[in-house]
Design a protein around this nucleic acid. Structure first.
Lengths: 248, 248
DNA sequence: AAGTGGTCTAGACCACCCT
DNA sequence: GGGTGGTCTAGACCACTTT
């Protein structure tokens, strides 16, 4: 029943490190290598598969990255069990994900204006309450349905006139294009859960008090300058995320 | 104002690839390398820093893994913007995380018994409705507060007596220890949001109808055998998760 | 002392992109 | 054809663990 080749096939288009990773991954999924088992030493694998050590190490590094095993200097490489009580989750870019699934998606701009910063905005952008900020509200839709609500407060640059046309379409980073000092270089994201209030529920076409993901965003430019703060609400009845276990 | 060495320090304990990754990362965070910019070719970096190509590539690979840049064969290596509309989130193992924070945590077993599979369990474990399964309910607590509710349905192995003592403590994988055929080798995790019902809210000491994370788990053993299914509820008022941007 | 993983080199050849 | 990243080798030395 073992149709799998346990050898590196030079005719195969896949590189050797990838083939080896696949072979080892298969042994783990087969139960031939079990939790706690030690992998053969790298030098043994080199001999067994006719590969150099760097290539063998690269295959093992792939599996380590996926959390299938761990390495201990001086001791060996050991198989981990599956991540039962936790894992990694990716929240993909909304429009990218939709277009990948062949679904048309749009962003609708609800509001974009200069307002005075309230308590929360001032605190998060480290400005004074009452200072001017650009406020922006958007809804992202797909299949004729609103799915994500986005609200952002953006640092207002008095040296630059505020242009509504610049705002509101697909990609947020473009908001800052042309203003190198305000270009975000880092984003701190925080994922939590919340219950939609009446306004949010109406915009998202949900019943009030339903649950949603909330992804808070704080965008940093160079020199530790905070350039934008806000959050996105993902409808709880339309989104779920899967742990990463990219098949090899 | 540039206190950063832009050279590899052989006296430094950090390996060369790591130092180079730190230097490049700093240039991105400084805004010296901006979104869309092309990195110098690998061979240039080799010369500039006096490193072999493999070492330079390893540094770049680190940054690529973190989503800071991407590579295109034949064209070059380019800086990405920060992941504004999505990112990676890790949900850590509950007890590991608590002990890391110096907080004592416990697991309390509420129920462990053999029951007949209902519709959902039968569907998810691919058994017949009414077949026997092991049912288990646990609450994980820290700081005197219940924080996570766990409910699992485990494949019942008639050849093996069901022992309540085996169940219920810290680590789920141990449930299967000693039964190699049932040892999980893979876990499919699905993250969603939900609203706590009366029973769940009481067990978690929350008000009813509050929001929570729901992490559904399907555990697979070798031969594509489904060995357990269930879900964990994380109190929404006590949990939030941060995107991964490990500082270099 | 022997065995293990961690780092690094100085080359080599290949696949792809652009001119 | 020249430049880029992608893969691979056959060594070397080091740090750590175990015997």
């Amino acid at each position: 029943m073992n149709d799998l080749k346990d050898k590196i096939d030079v005719e195969d288009f896949a590189p050797a490190y990838y083939q080896l990773a696949r072979i080892l991954n298969e042994k783990i999924m087969n139960g031939k290598l079990r939790q706690g088992d030690r992998l053969p030493p790298e030098t043994s694998l080199c001999e067994e598969f006719g590969l150099s050590r760097m290539t063998v190490r690269r295959a093992i590094a792939m599996l380590e990255e996926q959390g299938l095993l761990y390495r201990q200097r001086g001791k060996g490489t050991f198989i981990k069990g599956p991540p039962v009580d936790g894992g990694m989750f990716m929240i993909p870019d909304f429009h990218q994900e939709m277009s990948k699934q062949g679904i048309d998606s749009t962003t609708r701009l609800l509001a974009a204006k200069v307002v005075k910063a309230g308590e929360a905005e001032a605190e998060n952008l480290k400005i004074k309450k009452g200072d001017k900020v650009v406020y922006m509200e958007r809804v992202m839709e797909a299949g004729g349905e609103p799915l994500v609500f986005d609200r952002k407060f953006i640092l207002y640059d008095p040296s630059r006139p505020f242009l509504e046309e610049e705002i509101g379409y697909e990609s947020s980073p473009e908001l800052f294009s042309g203003f190198p000092e305000m270009q975000p270089v880092r984003a701190d994201l925080t994922l939590s859960v919340t219950i939609l209030n009446a306004m949010e529920a109406e915009l998202l076409n949900c019943i009030e008090s339903s649950a949603a993901f909330r992804m808070e965003q704080l965008l940093w430019a160079a020199n530790d300058l905070r350039v934008a703060w806000g959050w996105m609400l993902y409808r709880g009845d339309r989104f779920e995320f899967h742990s990463l276990g990219k098949p090899i």
